[in-house]
Simulated scan of single mutants.
Amino acid sequence: MQPRIPRAPVIAAIIVALTSVSLAGLLLPALWDEAFGRRDPGRAVLGLAAAAGVCALYGRLLWLNLTRRTGPAHRLGLAAITAVSWALPALLGVDTGWGNALLVPAGLIAVVLPARQAVAVAAAGTIAGAGYGLVLGMRPLAVLYQLVAFPMVTFSGFITVWLFHVVQELREARAELARSAVGEERLRFARDLHDVLGHSLQAVALRAEVAERFADRDPERVRKELAEIQTMAREAVRDVREVVRGHRATSLRTELDGMSAVLRAAGIACERPDLPTDLPARVHEPLGWVVREAATNILRHSSATWCSVRVDALDAEPDAEPDAEPDTAPDAARVRLEIVNDGASRRAGPAAGTGTSGSGLAGLAERLAAAGGEFTAAAAGDGTFRLVAALPAGET
């Protein structure tokens, strides 16, 4: 079972507590000797007051830097800790363990100061601490320990704060990725729902208009259209349920059948093309969405009288498609869908023909790009509107 990670303030409090215990480990032996070895209350009180003040200020500065509340005044705090810690061995002597106090400010150097300044101060502190220890009469082994321990304590303080901040940034990045995933899923759902309901409701509205026109003169036609409306409504409900479940599959063959049927019912000449026999299964769903959206936009945004649909499986050789335009000549095996209608000049504005804007075509472009394909939709100079979608025939 994965352990639950505490919140940032809790982790910061734990780091401060552990650091305080480490400082106590440096100073308590000397305090113990003052209180129970020398039995000098004055020296013991002085040592206890100095150690308590140093630990309290140290913990405060560490907490503020962990919570990213740094300030220039923190350097004064570091200077105060250094002054008190380095004064204790001179006042109380190094023979009772106060020489360890020389290491106390090292852990804050890289926390309070910028990196370049911290390196210089740590190097200077290492050399000065060793020389100061020799002046105070520290043993050579203790001075050697000072030379090794001072930079190590400095680096340890830096690593502690750096790791804490890295963990917090990773936590924030993880939360941001979760929010982004939720947003992308909402966009996907909205796009699928638009594609499904836009086509189905447009087809239902068209059938209802046809039934209304024949209401007084052809009851049989009206009954036929009403039956079609019922079938389309049931299919729309089924499609919405499958979109909600997230596993709706769109077939290019089925969408071409539906497109040709609904356009012919609207009085637009459209024949379903024959599909290549070796059409890869992976292209059916993306191109099926293109056909569905194209049919919806022709019905909603144009006054087309005819629509031409063509599906080609292009070979990898550039000369496999002699009549291809230079900028569309294939350099790899792919499947190309082309839908052309004559409604571009019959309606002003960017939505003429199959449309050049809106969430539908934007969703198609996203789908094709995700599948490694290309998508273009634009009006031609001859009053037609051309929509072209191309997908690699193999895996991308």
Rank of each mutant, 00 (worst) to 15 (best):
V153R: 12
P219V: 08
A362N: 10
L48F: 07
V121D: 13
A304Q: 05
E325M: 08
V45H: 02
A377E: 07
G137Y: 12
A390F: 01
A123M: 14
E338I: 10
A128K: 06
E317K: 12
I81E: 08
M1K: 11
L361P: 00
A332N: 02
V182M: 10
L31Q: 12
L92T: 08
A236C: 15
L64W: 10
R221Q: 09
A90R: 05
R171A: 12
E235D: 15
F164K: 04
L275I: 13
G394D: 09
G93T: 05
N297V: 12
A101F: 06
A87Y: 04
L361N: 04
Q168T: 00
E169L: 06
P286T: 03
R75V: 10
L361V: 11
R367C: 01
T328S: 14
L48V: 05
H247N: 15
A261T: 15
V237S: 07
G71H: 08
T277W: 04
A173S: 08
R334C: 12
S180V: 06
R300A: 14
V148D: 05
N341S: 12
V84I: 15
A365Y: 02
R4N: 01
D33F: 13
R116I: 11
F155K: 03
D40W: 01
Q2N: 14
G372K: 10
A122M: 09
G246I: 09
A120H: 07
L76V: 11
R234Y: 02
V54S: 05
S357G: 08
A233S: 15
P276M: 07
T396K: 11
L26Q: 14
L88S: 02
L28T: 04
E169R: 15
E285Y: 00
L76C: 06
V388G: 00
P219E: 08
V16G: 09
V161K: 08
R4I: 12
A149F: 07
A304W: 01
M138I: 10
P140D: 04
A329W: 03
A149H: 05
V143F: 07
R186G: 08
L299N: 04
G349V: 14
R68T: 00
F36N: 03
D192Y: 06
A348N: 11
A35E: 04
V196H: 02
G343M: 12
